[in-house]
């Protein structure tokens, strides 16, 4: 029955409207089994809506969804035994203690490993006896994380899980996710913390206004970004501005500063080396830059 699926999650042309707003507008997402997949996007881009459709809480207006080989709307109960979910905004039952919530959610999923539960409580430095209403935001988040990570499941759906965690706890979280990867689990990590995604994820999808605008491995995405170059040359460089992939060129005597599409880097460097490089500073592309590029497109898109 449980054949090894190559794709843990696929959505094709998924749309969802809330009244006049298009929350999802033809979303195509693919998450392979066993990978940690970063799901990046600004607030309101449709990350949580996507996850709620994957959980069968919302019904897509059109398009196709497949989760662990099933339909999240019709097979919700059987699929939910195989996944754990951490919401972005964890609301605990005010009169239940953290320990009770962890056990309850684990049991409702079909059981949790008590030794793993205890070790996670220790690592996250969480007192399980406090009542839900007395936890801080970060501690509520930890309760949901411990409940999810202590469950024996194939897939983790994490919606901005570190939003309230301090840097120490964020480091613990990263360790835990790396362990999950080593155990062969699939993780969909929605986030807008780019350093986290860069540190943890095998592949990344960037969502904007309800569509996936970029998807691929970090290496592939870096390829789409620009490397910034500052250098001094000893001889003249001819027609640098005319090369494809060179942007924001500033040339002042023998000092040159520019942004180069990573795909064109070799060609540009060849030109510079031919002129004789005396000093070179280059900054590697970051995911943040890619993200900001899509995000600022959004800004110009709305103002024009």
């Amino acid at each position: 029955m449980f054949t090894i699926m190559e794709q843990a999650i696929t959505t094709e042309n998924l749309t969802k409207r809330f009244g006049p707003t298009h929350a999802l507008d033809g979303l195509d997402l693919a998450v392979s089994t066993g990978e940690v997949h970063g799901f990046l996007g600004p607030n309101g881009a449709g990350k949580s809506t996507t996850i709620r459709i994957l959980l069968g809480l919302l019904r897509a207006d059109s398009g196709h969804v497949s989760l662990l080989g099933g339909d999240p709307w019709h097979d919700a109960v059987s699929l939910h035994r195989r996944l754990a979910y951490v919401p972005g905004d964890v609301n605990l039952w005010p009169s239940l203690s953290g320990g009770e919530v962890i056990d309850l959610l684990g049991r409702l999923r079909g059981g949790l490993d008590p030794r793993r539960r205890d070790s996670l409580l220790e690592r996250f430095d969480l007192d399980p006896r406090k009542k839900g209403r007395t936890y801080s935001k970060g501690n509520r988040q930890k309760v949901a994380l411990v409940a999810a990570l202590a469950s024996d499941v194939e897939l983790l759906l994490l919606d901005e899980p570190t939003a309230g965690l301090d840097p120490l706890m964020e480091a613990v979280f990263r360790e835990c996710i790396n362990e999950e990867r080593d155990r062969g689990r699939t993780v969909l990590l929605s986030s807008h913390i780019l350093s986290e995604v860069e540190a943890l994820c095998d592949r990344v999808s960037i969502i904007r206004a309800g569509r996936i605008v970029e998807s691929g491995t970090l290496a592939q995405l870096r390829h789409l970004t620009r490397t910034s170059i500052h250098c001094e040359v000893s001889g003249p460089v001819d027609d640098l501005a005319g090369l494809p992939g060179v942007h924001d060129l500033e040339q002042e005597g023998d000092r040159i500063a520019c942004e180069v599409d990573t795909a064109q880097l070799n060609e540009v460097l060849t030109k510079l080396v031919a002129a004789g490089v005396t000093s070179l500073v280059s900054q590697p592309p970051t995911l943040e830059e890619l993200f900001m590029r899509h995000y600022s497109d959004d800004i110009t898109g709305t103002t024009s």
């Binding site: 809480l57 939910h80 979910y85 409702l108």
Partner: peptide, 13 residues
């Protein structure tokens, strides 16, 4: 209060 979201994300129908 989004408690149902957490309950229904488990195998509770």
């Amino acid at each position: 209060r989004l408690h149902a979201e957490q309950t229904l994300a488990t195998s509770v129908s």
